[in-house]
């Protein structure tokens, strides 16, 4: 890790890369907050949603730049993202959906859908098919990521099913 930071700090190219990464994370945060507004998330949870989206994108970027495997990146990112939203849900005593639905938007294969459409209509079926397959693989990877994260028992996140939880609310 230290070596990596040194490499980044020592040459100018590294600095621009670091800046780009920061800007990307900021964009992921802002984008997720914007979507949380679209889905009418209560104001007090919006920044938490943004953090979820930013962390998801950070994991995706990291794995993608180290291994060049977007599918595995999407899998890991959605797993981390789901774990984060479950943790936040317990902290805020709010439904997990709120954080998960907004955060996951950074990973949805919007680009894949677009390229599939583009090449289909340009008459390049082979390219379109390969993009289509990639899109489906991404979707399955996201699904599996959520699945893995949901298999973690909820007591890990400090969730109690006993009615005390219901009673201590105001």
């Amino acid at each position: 890790m230290n070596e990596l930071i040194n490499v980044i700090l020592e040459n100018e190219e590294g600095l621009t890369v670091a800046l780009q990464v920061l800007l990307q994370l900021a964009a992921a945060f802002v984008g997720t907050v914007a979507f949380s507004v679209l889905f009418s998330v209560p104001k007090e949870y919006r920044s938490a949603c943004g953090v979820t989206g930013g962390v998801g994108w950070a994991v995706y970027l990291m794995i993608n730049s180290l291994n060049h495997t977007p599918i595995i990146g999407a899998f890991a990112a959605s797993a981390v993202l789901t774990i984060m939203s479950r943790y936040q849900a317990v902290q805020f005593k709010a439904p997990t959906t709120i954080f998960l639905l907004c955060g996951i938007f950074t990973l949805v294969p919007g680009a894949g859908i677009y390229y599939t459409a583009y090449y289909t209509f340009m008459g390049e079926e082979a390219t379109a098919l390969s993009y289509g397959m990639d899109t489906i693989k991404m979707a399955v990877a996201i699904g599996l990521g959520i699945g893995v994260a949901y298999s973690i028992p909820s007591f890990v996140f400090g969730w109690k099913k006993e009615p005390e939880v219901w009673n201590d609310e105001n």
Binding site: F39, L100, V108, I142, G143
Partner: peptide, 8 residues
């Protein structure tokens, strides 16, 4: 993009 129906 269908992020919500996919997740649900």
């Amino acid at each position: 993009a269908p992020g919500i129906p996919l997740t649900n």
